[in-house]
Design a binder for these strands. Structure first.
Lengths: 191, 191
DNA sequence: TGTTTTTCTTAAACTTGTTTATTTTTTTCG
DNA sequence: CGAAAAAAATAAACAAGTTTAAGAAAAACA
């Protein structure tokens, strides 16, 4: 009967009240019900304008594939959980697929913005922070400490200047001793 | 002259227009200018109701200390960047301190909410996702893969049931082979 | 049910990163 | 400036995690 039953229940649960007819209409117009079979890929690295997904039934995963082809899962979503790349509408670095056959409600970033309609500074701050952190987690999962140092030096050379070495090693997730090893190796290379 | 000059400029830059007197007033009432000296601790693990900080001048870092006392930096903020624990007002697991003498504008979470006043479902989703990811990054930085497995098994036993082992290893950031080693060791222990 | 495919285990040699301790270099500050 | 403190480099023994490859177990499905 209900076109978006699960998602309306979800919103009513969050807001702790019944939604108005107008609100239900807005939701029904914004979301799209989709079914994915096991192993079906929902979006892939390089896609832009990826959608956000709310799982009614099943199990999804978001993951990244490193240069050597190895996969690293970033996030799972099961019943009543959200998943998607908050970088959207920008190009995504992630893959999203279904681990089990899944029934979901999807929404475009545009429609999310319409529903939310007050994207103030603070929300930008959260979104940016999230995207930054996500990139950082991916780096740590997929690269060696040496590669992460190279990237940091390339993108934020000024930080390398301003920070004592032990703060950099801590940021990279290694000991100061090991960073020192990396640096002496790097210095030897540049001869 | 201006009480919150830098932060007002920041908002005007973001919104790409001059702020109204009313808006300036709102900002001046919400933010508080603070100065921290080098190595001064701004908040520490266990504190609740931590504030958000916008750096006018200087360099801050947010970090975590693991059980063995080792520090891992999670985030730096220099001029015109935000830093803070989005988990607030809940108890924080982080420390925030000044690497250099710093001048900042701070705001409580409550005042942020007043300024933003439309905390809809999607914003909750971002905030929750962020907090989740942050926790995950901290785990990967501070724990061994074995400890991360134990935690996953404790908190989400149902996921361990539903996921093939190679998806779990990928989530933990290790190879399937190494996870298998961890598990056989674990099984031997439980005799 | 049995066959095919997928997933898991084990082993051995290897690489990445840690620990502890000592020495050298750089920075801070009276 | 010179002494003291903080930060960085080096070495050696060790622990955590990877790679490749082969066999065993479990799941899928015709």
């Amino acid at each position: 009967m209900e076109k978006c039953g699960t998602i309306i229940s979800y919103y009513e649960h969050i807001y702790n009240r019944k939604l108005t007819d107008w609100e239900r209409k807005l939701i029904e117009d914004s979301f799209q019900k989709e079914v994915f079979k096991k192993k079906e890929i929902i979006f892939r690295s390089g896609d832009s304008n990826t959608r956000h997904y709310f799982v009614e039934k099943g199990l999804l995963r978001m993951y990244v594939i490193d240069t050597s082809g190895k996969e690293f899962n970033i996030l799972f979503a099961r019943e009543n959980q959200w998943i998607g790349d908050l970088s959207t509408p920008a190009t995504t670095a992630f893959f999203l697929d279904a681990i089990e056959k899944s029934v979901v409600y999807s929404i475009s970033d545009e429609n999310i913005n319409l529903l939310t309609n007050n994207f103030s500074t603070f929300v930008r701050y959260i979104k940016k922070s999230y995207i930054f952190l996500q990139r950082r987690l991916v780096s740590i999962l997929t690269n060696t400490a040496e590669e992460n140092y190279e990237e940091l030096a390339r993108i934020h050379p000024e930080l390398i200047q301003r920070l004592p070495q032990y703060h950099i090693s801590s940021y990279l997730g290694v000991t100061p001793v090991f960073l020192s090893k990396i640096l002496s190796k790097r210095a030897r290379k540049k001869d």
